[in-house]
């Protein structure tokens, strides 16, 4: 009896573990292919002024995916925040963004005049022509380590 129970338990545990591992692996594999980054660039400004990072995020999955804004980091900048420029008639202002969603089978454009990553406290000397990295985390648990091309400010996207 005892022995049978133990055997049953072991089998159950193994089965559970395997299915869990399988489920996790499947999720990770699917999720890893869900969101893609393209056209990632930073508009460089002199004298360690805050710079703006732009990227197009494409979601090929069936579910919307949120950017995990509390966990967007960079090895190159001490501070990374998603901001949005809001036009209000003749004036414009920047606002912190709490949530940004890449829609299912859709695109989130982080582009001039709208969303931008505000990059501050550069950890090293950065110049046009360099590449910097942002680690973008998403609500499905995936992370994109994205290279951003640093461009001269006069270059529009």
């Amino acid at each position: 009896m005892n022995r049978q129970t133990t055997t049953l338990r072991s089998i159950c545990a193994a089965a559970l573990g395997m299915s869990l591992a399988f489920a996790l692996a499947t999720t990770a594999a699917e999720a890893a292919e869900t969101v893609h980054a393209s056209n990632a660039w930073v508009r460089w400004l002199p004298n360690k002024l805050p710079a703006a990072g732009y990227v197009t995020l494409t979601n090929s999955g069936d579910k919307p995916v949120d950017l995990d804004l509390d966990h967007v980091t960079s090895p190159d900048y001490g501070s990374v925040m998603l901001h949005q420029t809001v036009s209000n008639g003749s004036t414009s202002q920047m606002e912190m963004v709490d949530k940004a969603t890449v829609p299912a089978h859709g695109v989130l454009k982080i582009a001039p005049g709208g969303y931008h990553f505000m990059l501050e406290d550069a950890k090293r000397k950065i110049a046009p022509g360099d590449t910097v990295h942002l680690r973008l985390k998403f609500s499905d648990g995936t992370t994109l380590d994205t290279p951003f091309a640093v461009k001269s400010p006069a270059e529009a996207q």
Partner: peptide
């Protein structure tokens, strides 16, 4: 103003164009 990472440089870049 210079501490303006989005609209100001974008406007200047457009004027360059």
């Amino acid at each position: 103003y210079t501490h303006c990472p989005d609209v100001c440089p974008e406007t200047m870049a457009r004027l360059m164009q």
